[in-house]
């Protein structure tokens, strides 16, 4: 009977090993922060989803404490951050997600003046951009590419977040 038990264990462990060989790259990191208000309990979930880590997409979601999604961003990880992840690089991807899920929190007055923006840096028109900037609203900036950040602002009147601008930033994902 011991032999039977041992055989069952070996079979089960072999099955586990085979499952690991074809393991998907479905990983995530969660980070709590105050974005929508000073005392808010918002949550960021940064995810990698794919059949392997070199073929994963990245999904970045900000939710309020009530669970409402207020911002989402997505891209194939290789398109945004380059061919830096190996197929079996789960540890590397997890480290990236841990870092990615911790954005920079500022206010919109930290955004550059309209006159200094480069074409395509914002999708807002000048009037709206300058209004958002002048109101000094909460601003969250997360990496959306190599040395590139996407910044979104919280509009309390609408109860939603909107894209403010993309900006160059020091690379911290490696």
């Amino acid at each position: 009977m011991r032999q039977l038990l041992a055989a069952a264990l070996v079979v089960a462990l072999m099955a586990c090993t085979q499952a690991e060989d074809v393991a998907r790259c479905d990983l995530e990191a969660t980070h709590d922060l105050a974005f929508t208000a000073a005392d808010a309990e918002d949550t960021i979930v940064a995810q990698a989803i794919g059949p392997s880590c070199d073929k994963a997409i990245g999904l970045y979601v900000v939710r309020t404490a009530d669970g409402y999604p207020i911002w989402s961003w997505s891209a194939p990880l290789t398109h945004a951050f380059g061919d830096v992840f190996e197929a079996d690089g789960a540890e590397h991807v997890q480290s990236f997600l841990d870092s990615w899920s911790q954005p920079v929190i500022e206010t919109t007055q930290a955004a550059p003046a309209w006159e200094t923006l480069t074409p395509g840096q914002t999708t807002l028109d000048q009037l709206t951009y300058e209004d958002v900037r002048a109101r000094d609203l909460p601003m969250l900036c997360h990496f959306s590419g190599t040395a590139r950040q996407t910044c979104v602002f919280w509009e309390p009147a609408a109860g939603g977040a909107g894209h403010l601008l993309d900006r160059d930033a020091e690379e911290t994902t490696e």
Partner: peptide, 11 residues
């Protein structure tokens, strides 16, 4: 081959 070509996310 499983390579991601495009991804779009919303609510």
């Amino acid at each position: 081959a499983g390579d991601p070509l495009w991804v779009f996310a919303s609510t």
